[in-house]
Each structure stands twice: as structure tokens, then as C-alpha cells.
């Protein structure tokens, strides 16, 4: 019985939260890695793209709610998501046209593009801060049902001491992420446009020789990366809450995930997202209760690091990978 309790506790406090957080990171890291593979720079504005896009989704959600549209048990934001993605993609494409294209044509050093992305980050950050009713506040925009499985129900069913909760937002995160990854990989591996993207990422000059239109590839990349970013941001916001600054901070674990997986490697980005999330949760979770179920009594909390240091986990993973395998676990681009 205690073993079962321990398992349920692990599932409830570690596996489920880490899996949904990992899925959100994976979507973010996929965007970062795609942009890196095609445009060849680390996009510092990615966190703020997530924030800006999510703010748009929230506004659309409120609009839909105001005219009485909802999705029943599912959050209305799901319905608003495509509209938010479209609006955000238009903005991102505009930044490419006005900002990045110039440096791409000049074949500028990647670090100049990184610097330009800092400028875009400032602008998107300012726009998010100026969004009516959202700004710098903490906003909750989840509606519909809260739980798929609630603690009480679970305890009643199983008779265990430990409860298990699965929130709708968590289940939704996993389902949406799985769908998004399936669609993305199918697109990259099966479609002509997706293969052209991979070819361009692999060998830009040869792609040009083969008649692949670079501008088209770049546009497609921005749209896909934005769609993934806004989806990740919306799921993260539904799961926790929306606060613009948190989206800036999530940039670090996202970069860590992308680098761990190998920058430019989409499969690696997904794996990296889960590696970072599971490490973060496992290291900052107090294991005292679970240890007690397994027969180890402890005075301490058995917490390796306090939650405030969760970013340190991404950082340490990042450093370890940089030290021992700079191209990432799945061999991304080194240059």
C-alpha cells in the first residue's frame, strides 16, 4: 500500500507537473531550434513572442466570452488560439521584413541578429505591457472544467491516502503538444515545403542551387515558430497564469532545452524540453513524504534545491552539455 502511495505521490507531484511543463518547454524550444536552424541565430525575443501572442489570445478569449461563445468543459482560449497565432504571426513576419531581412541579405554575423532580436524583444515587451487590462498583471484566463481527475474522487476510487489530480490544462497541454509535434514532424519529413526547410537548414548554398526560395523558407519558419510559441505560451498561461515577466524568464529553460537537444535539431528540442523539466521538478521537489512511504524517515525536507533556484537547474544542465557535448545530445549544428 505504501509503495502505491509513493507511486501516486510521485505521479501527482513530479511526473504530471513535469510532463506538462516539459511539453510547454518543448514547444518553445522547437521554435527556438527551428529559427536557429534556418535563420542561424538565437532569438532572444522568443520569450516575449510567447508573451505577446498569449496576450492576444487572452484578448480574443475575452471577446469570445463577451459574445457568449465557449467550449463547454474546455477553455475558450483554445478557440481563440488560432486567431492569436494568426495575429502574432503577422506581427512577427513584419519584424522579419523590417528588421531581420536586412541582416540576412548582408549575411551579417549571427551575433548582430541576436542583438537585433533584443531590440524586437524590447518592442514586444513594451506592447505586451501596454495591452489593456493585461499589462504587467497576473491574469488567469482559464474557464471550463478544472479537473479531469480530482484528489477527492481519486481517493474515493482507490482508497489510497495519496490523492492524484489531473487538471484539464495539464491533460490539454499533453494532448495539444503531442498533436503539434506529430503535425510538425509529419510536415518536416513528408511535405515538399518541410523538406525544403530541412534542406535549407542543412546546406543553405546547395538549397539555393536546388531552386529553393529562401524567403519562402524563412517566412514559413517564422510562422511555424510563432504558432508553436503562442501555443506554448497559451498552454503555460492556462496551466499556471499569465504574467509577462515569467515569459521572459522561461527563455532560459527554453534555450537550455534547445541546446541540450542540439540547436537546430527539432527532435532534440522536444527531448531537451522534457529533460530540463523533469530535472527541474525532481531537484526542487521535497522528497520527504515519498521517502517516508518507502520507509526512510527524515528530519529534513529532502529537497535538493529550493524552488527559487529552479533556473539554476537549467543552467547546470546547460553547462554540463556545453562542457561535455557542445553540439547537444542529438548533434545539432556546431557553427
Amino acid at each position: 500500500m505504501d509503495i502505491l502511495n509513493a507511486l501516486v505521490a510521485i505521479l501527482n507531484f513530479v511526473v504530471i507537473p513535469a510532463a506538462s511543463y516539459g511539453a510547454q518547454l518543448a514547444l518553445g524550444a522547437l521554435g527556438v531550434t527551428l529559427i536557429y536552424g534556418i535563420l542561424r541565430f538565437s532569438n532572444f525575443a522568443h520569450g516575449d513572442t510567447m508573451a505577446f501572442g498569449t496576450a492576444l489570445v487572452i484578448l480574443v478569449t475575452w471577446g469570445l466570452q463577451a459574445i457568449g461563445i465557449s467550449l463547454g468543459p474546455l477553455p475558450t482560449a483554445l478557440l481563440a488560439l488560432p486567431i492569436g497565432i494568426a495575429l502574432c504571426a503577422v506581427f512577427v513576419l513584419a519584424t522579419d521584413r523590417v528588421v531581420y531581412r536586412f541582416y540576412r541579405r548582408k549575411r551579417s554575423d549571427p551575433i548582430i541578429l541576436v542583438m537585433a532580436s533584443v531590440g524586437v524583444m524590447f518592442i514586444m515587451n513594451g506592447l505586451t505591457r501596454m495591452t489593456p487590462k493585461i499589462g504587467v498583471n497576473e491574469v488567469r484566463f482559464d474557464d471550463g472544467a478544472r479537473f479531469l481527475i480530482s484528489v477527492q474522487e481519486f481517493k474515493a476510487w482507490t482508497g489510497l491516502n495519496e490523492g492524484l489530480a489531473l487538471r484539464v490544462s495539464q491533460a490539454l497541454t499533453l494532448v495539444v503538444t503531442a498533436l503539434a509535434c506529430w503535425a510538425l514532424f509529419r510536415f518536416l519529413n513528408r511535405s515538399r515545403a518541410g523538406k525544403a526547410m530541412r534542406a535549407y537548414s542543412d546546406n543553405e548554398d546547395l538549397a539555393l542551387l536546388s531552386g529553393i526560395d529562401p524567403e519562402r523558407v524563412v517566412r514559413l519558419t517564422w510562422i511555424i515558430a510563432t504558432a508553436l510559441a503562442v501555443t506554448a505560451g497559451t498552454l503555460y498561461g492556462l496551466d499556471k497564469s499569465f504574467k509577462a515577466f515569467n515569459y521572459f524568464q522561461i527563455l532560459l529553460p527554453i534555450f537550455a532545452a534547445a541546446i541540450v537537444g542540439g540547436l537546430g535539431n527539432p527532435l532534440g528540442a522536444v527531448a531537451g524540453g522534457f529533460i530540463v523539466a523533469f530535472s527541474e521538478v525532481a531537484v526542487t521537489y521535497p522528497w520527504k513524504k515519498i521517502a517516508a512511504y518507502l520507509g526512510f524517515q527524515s528530519d529534513g525536507m529532502l529537497q535538493l534545491l529550493s524552488t527559487e533556484y529552479k533556473f539554476a537547474v537549467s543552467f547546470v544542465i546547460l553547462i554540463v552539455v556545453l562542457l561535455f557535448r557542445p553540439t547537444g545530445l542529438f548533434r545539432g549544428k556546431s557553427v
Partner: peptide, 19 residues
Amino acid sequence: LRSDYLAIATLGIGEIIVA
């Protein structure tokens, strides 16, 4: 390593020091 890595590593150390 490549130039962006320093940027990302320093971004991390910055947040950790503040934490």
C-alpha cells in the same frame, strides 16, 4: 564555443546570481 552560447550562459548566470 560559438558566440551565442556565451550569451545564453551569461543570461543564465545573471538570473542565478539575482536569485
